[in-house]
């Protein structure tokens, strides 16, 4: 092999470089894809981006560190409402990225408190506590002043900065309208988040998480500080959820309590199970399914001659059937099952 090939192979083994390279590839691909699609598809991709960020954090929490959170919608709500409040009067006091960071910070603060409480609980009790959270937090928005009550708060996305519009146009020849802007923001955030999460998963911290979810007694004996590790996982996942919530506020353009029902939390969970617990690619696939499947199925239904109502009802049915199929035939999720096949082929397991 040539020196360059040897060098590249060696570099590829360094996790950070690997992740960064993949991330850059992803960013570039995304730039071109978003530029060439219609605003409608861009809007869908924006949705997929924030769902994937939330799913990524959740899959690390549940799949990696074994803590079942039934209430991640609550953290999305915190991030979303923070963003909505900051963007309420049009232009935010600081740049949009700052708004997103603020949303993450506020959500992490809440997440840390919940995580510390949850670290003392086990299994079903964590699930129960987080479920209570999922119900309580959106209701808070109904009772506190300034959060818009049932109607919620409008969110106006700030104007696309000219430098961004020009840069994108130079690279891809496409204009950036507000809908697409959120898509660009979302996918950039997604790539960055996934690179960081992938780093964590490959690191010592990630190993600790996997150990404690596998067998927490053995992990403790091996020296792992369970409480600390669990809280850390919780905080990381809520940071992702806060970022996702911030993007969601901009994509949906309104934050109202009914948008963060228990439904959202359970749906996110179902997405990561479908895709494959504990894998980022699984989180991505699950989010893609959540975003594109309902609309695709409904369109297919209408073109197959069904009435609008029937076609609309088809979407949850299709999703449910897929879930059942996955649980029965490929319980490790799509990615998990593919991996198992791969390992078996290579004789690892």
């Amino acid at each position: 092999m040539s020196t360059l090939a040897v060098r590249s192979a060696a570099l590829w083994r360094v996790p950070l470089l690997r992740h960064v390279v993949l991330g850059l590839v992803g960013l570039t691909v995304m730039l071109f894809v978003l530029g060439s699609l219609s605003p409608f598809r861009d809007a869908q991709l924006a949705t997929m981006a924030y769902l994937a960020i939330a799913a990524g954090g959740l899959t690390v929490l549940t799949g990696f560190s074994g803590q079942l959170s039934l209430g991640h919608g609550a953290f999305l709500a915190v991030g979303a409402y923070t963003t909505a409040v900051l963007l309420e009067d049009g232009d935010p006091p600081f740049p949009l990225v700052g708004v997103m960071v603020a949303a993450v910070v506020v959500t992490v603060a809440v997440g840390a408190v919940v995580g510390i409480a949850a670290a003392r609980l086990h299994g079903p009790y964590v699930a129960g506590a987080t479920l209570a959270l999922a119900v309580a937090v959106p209701s808070l928005a109904r009772y506190l002043d300034g959060l818009g009550q049932e109607q919620g708060l409008h969110v106006r996305v700030p104007d696309v900065p000219t430098w961004f519009d020009d840069t994108v146009w130079m690279i891809t020849g496409a204009d950036v309208d507000p809908t697409s802007y959120v898509a660009y923001l979302g996918w950039t955030a997604l790539v960055v988040t996934y690179v960081l999460l992938a780093n964590l998963m490959r690191s010592r911290v990630g190993r600790t998480w996997r150990a404690l979810s596998n067998d927490d007694v053995a992990a403790e004996i091996a020296g792992v500080r369970l409480g600390r590790a669990r809280v850390l996982a919780f905080v990381v996942s809520t940071a992702a959820a806060g970022l996702a919530g911030s993007l969601m506020a901009m994509a949906v353009r309104v934050t109202s309590p009914s948008g963060f029902s228990v439904d959202l939390s359970v749906t996110l969970l179902s997405a990561i199970v479908l895709g494959g617990l504990g894998t980022l690619s699984g989180a991505l696939i699950g989010s893609a399914l959540l975003t594109f499947l309902p609309q695709a199925v409904t369109s297919w239904g209408t073109s197959a001659g069904l009435s609008d109502v029937r076609a609309a009802e088809l979407a949850p049915v299709a999703y449910g059937l897929i879930m059942i199929a996955v649980v029965l035939l490929a319980p490790a999720g799509i990615v998990g099952s593919l991996r198992r096949v791969w390992w078996r082929r290579r004789g690892i397991a």
Partner: peptide
Amino acid sequence: MRRYRRLGAVLLVAALATSACGRDPDKRD
């Protein structure tokens, strides 16, 4: 290591597939 290569491949295929959906002719008007 290979799983990341796979992820990259999936991303690329997805990108190609979606950009094959074509440009929106009304986009710049």
